[in-house]
Simulated assay, not measured.
Amino acid sequence: MSQTCGFVAIVGRPNVGKSTLMNRILGQKISITSRRPQTTRHQVMGIKTAADAQFIYVDTPGMHIMSKDRNKAINRFMNQAATQALRDVDCVVFIIDRTRWTDEDQAVLKRLEHVNAPIILAVNKVDRLNDKGDLLPWLAEVGARREFAAIVPISAKHGTQVDTLEDEVAKHLPESVHYFPEDQITDKSLRFMAAELVREKVMRQLGDELPYQMTVEIEEFRETERVTHISALILVERQGQKVILIGENGERIKNIGREARLDMERVLDTKVMLNLWVKVKRGWSDDERALKSLGYDLD
């Protein structure tokens, strides 16, 4: 039997479950998640090899409408990263949320107008529907917005019908040799994943108080026989944010560090010694040069 292999972009507005879906498909955490919109800032590749088929999923930042409070260089970067992921893919999974259609969903659909690849619509979070009878008319309504290769109701969180979605994606993988070894699951380095895990814990604890003016830079990543030593710098834009992040008597930063370390130990399968520092770097999120130095680079 011939091999198939292809790239699959996972797109949608912020906070519809793109990263949760990719983690569910891969069976482990590759993309960080939180309840806050725009947790994902980079393209993150997740690779799944099943027998003769290799799926190369690309998780993307949520495509969003630029507004007064979301008009910085980092917002432009995230939109560009999501749009760039649509180039030369073999299939697109467009995720929406239950029976809600927003202006940002419409904006994503508009961006998909010029995509030649088949587009599968995944209607997520159907487990939260109070009346399942609402689903069929809703599927008919969204199905009329454009021609989709398939429409699949799913729950990324609980795995409902995710296998059906994968079967639909598999139909569009071209015949090709596999691009990656069968045991590789991402193109991202362990250093990148360590930074993302710290950022996830900050987002989960401080999403409302520290929306987007925070990023993480790994200053040390040193592996020894028994312990991996990691030093991470958390950058914020104002002194008040630094105070909030550290917390009273340093309790908040300790909690963030403990939760991040436990996740790192699961990912790295080794003991981790994690040190965190917080530094004020004013205006980094609207400074393209600073963004590039911090790894926000489409190249």
Rank of each mutant, 00 (worst) to 15 (best):
M1C: 08
S2M: 13
Q3D: 09
N15F: 11
G17E: 01
G17T: 10
N23D: 04
I30E: 03
I30C: 05
I32E: 01
R35D: 15
R36Q: 08
Q38H: 13
R41K: 08
R41W: 11
V44T: 12
M45Y: 14
M45G: 01
G46F: 05
T49N: 02
Q54W: 05
F55H: 03
I56Q: 03
G62F: 01
G62D: 05
G62S: 00
K68F: 13
D69M: 10
K72S: 10
R76T: 08
A82I: 07
A82G: 05
A85P: 04
L86K: 08
R87S: 09
V89D: 04
C91T: 08
V93S: 12
I95A: 11
D97W: 10
R98T: 06
E104R: 11
D105Y: 03
L109M: 01
L109Q: 02
L112P: 11
H114I: 10
H114S: 14
V115H: 01
A117F: 02
L121F: 08
L121M: 07
N124K: 05
R128C: 14
L136Y: 06
L139Q: 00
G143T: 15
R145E: 06
R145S: 00
I151S: 01
V152M: 13
A156Y: 01
H158L: 13
T160W: 09
V162E: 00
V169G: 00
V169H: 03
K171Y: 00
P174F: 00
P174W: 02
H178E: 01
Y179C: 14
Q184I: 04
T186Y: 10
K188C: 08
K188W: 15
M193S: 09
V202H: 04
L206S: 04
L206N: 11
G207L: 11
G207T: 04
P211F: 12
Y212L: 12
Y212C: 12
E217T: 02
E217C: 04
F221W: 04
T228P: 00
T228V: 15
I234D: 12
Q239E: 07
Q239A: 11
Q241S: 15
K242Q: 09
I244H: 07
G250D: 09
I253Q: 10
I256M: 06
G257M: 08
G257D: 11
A260T: 01
A260V: 14
M264H: 13
V267E: 14
L268W: 10
T270Y: 15
T270Q: 14
V272C: 06
L274D: 05
N275F: 13
N275G: 14
L276Q: 00
W277F: 13
W277R: 14
W277N: 12
V278P: 03
G283N: 15
S285W: 02
D286T: 13
D287T: 00
E288D: 12
L291G: 04
K292G: 05
L294F: 12
Y296E: 11
L298T: 07
D299C: 09
